[in-house]
């Protein structure tokens, strides 16, 4: 799917994109990365516990071939 572009095409495209980049500085992110990692893993565990609490009938198959 990816295509090689000429240097000129690439430069024009990327400069075009850069022209539209942020007008507002990103908000400060005070929390330490390691804390957020622990929070995210805890969220995975909490979701797991909440899923486990729900009794699922044995015959309920996963919605794999998903059709509404």
């Amino acid at each position: 799917m990816k295509t090689p572009l000429s240097r000129r095409q690439w430069t024009a495209a990327v400069l075009g994109a850069a022209a539209a980049y942020p007008q507002t500085p990103p908000a400060a992110q005070p929390a330490a990365a390691e804390d957020l990692g622990a929070v995210a893993r805890q969220q995975v565990r909490r979701n797991s516990e909440l899923l486990a609490k729900h009794a699922i009938p044995m015959a309920t198959e996963p919605a794999f071939v998903f059709r509404p």
């Binding site: 893993r41 995975v44 979701n47 797991s48 899923l51 486990a52 729900h54 699922i56 309920t60 198959e61 996963p62 919605a63 794999f64």
Partner: peptide, 15 residues
């Protein structure tokens, strides 16, 4: 790190 069991159970509850 999400386990296969959790993903499958989520998809079963989705059903």
């Amino acid at each position: 790190e999400i386990s296969a069991r959790d993903y499958l159970n989520a998809m079963r509850i989705r059903r």
